[in-house]
């Protein structure tokens, strides 16, 4: 675990010097938010459409930033170096932690902006926040393992979204549904199945990632 922490700290150090992933994901989120807000205005859409838009913005922003963490190691020829000094599980956990933090920081910026600009009224803050937290774990878990896969393939850019989208769809579907319920003042219990699904998905995909990552890293 300490080694995973070291890998994470190394990635943070690198990120602060280049800000590549951070810039990509933040700018993507802001650009899509602007496009959405600009094209449909502040008051015309109901909670159903707004929850879907929010998750679409979050999903595609994460697609623009999550792959970077592994692609960078391959492109700078440091993957072998890293392989020489540490275990595969510490690499995976370190990178996963990085992606989770990355997603959280984007959400911290984009979600309040979205709520403000789009007039998205959240009645049940707890359901909303929990769905975002669990959803981020799921997105980051799936995104990290798919990033590891595509970093070893020949075409990296477009393939990431193609591979990640169908796998991460349960997160998007449940996330949209939970956000909708949080915005329409439905009782808390009605959203439990979505929260359960998001939580279970995060647990399953992260476990599968840890177990399968070794086969990619030491291929």
């Amino acid at each position: 675990m300490y080694k995973a922490w070291l890998v994470f700290r190394k990635d943070i150090q690198q990120e602060f010097k280049t800000r590549y992933a951070l810039n990509a994901i933040f700018l993507f989120a802001i650009v899509t938010l602007t496009a959405v807000s600009f094209s449909i205005g502040a008051f015309s859409a109901g909670p159903e459409i707004l929850s879907a838009l929010l998750w679409i913005i979050l999903f595609f922003s994460s697609m623009s930033g999550l792959a970077h963490i592994f692609v960078r190691e391959e492109e700078t020829h440091t993957a072998d170096t890293l392989k020489l000094v540490t275990t595969s599980s510490s690499v995976f956990l370190g990178k996963l932690l990085f992606n989770i933090i990355l997603l959280f920081s984007v959400e911290l910026l984009v979600v309040p902006l979205f709520i403000g600009v789009m007039n998205f009224v959240v009645y049940d803050g707890l359901v909303f926040v929990l769905s975002l937290v669990f959803g981020s774990f799921g997105l980051a878990g799936g995104g990290t393992i798919v990033a590891a896969i595509i970093s070893k393939s020949n075409t990296k850019g477009a393939l990431f979204t193609v591979l990640a989208f169908p796998i991460l769809l349960p997160v998007i579907v449940s996330g949209i549904s939970a956000a909708k319920k949080a915005a329409t003042n439905a009782p808390f219990v009605s959203a439990t199945s979505e929260l359960q699904a998001l939580f279970a998905f995060a647990v399953v995909i992260i476990t599968a990632g840890i177990l399968l990552f070794d086969f990619i890293w030491n291929e």
Partner: peptide, 25 residues
Amino acid sequence: FLGPYLELYQDLSAMENLQFFSKIR
């Protein structure tokens, strides 16, 4: 191991690189 395809982290300083590798080992 030393080879042309085995790079260190270019954005970090030599010290940061070597400290990271030492700690993780």
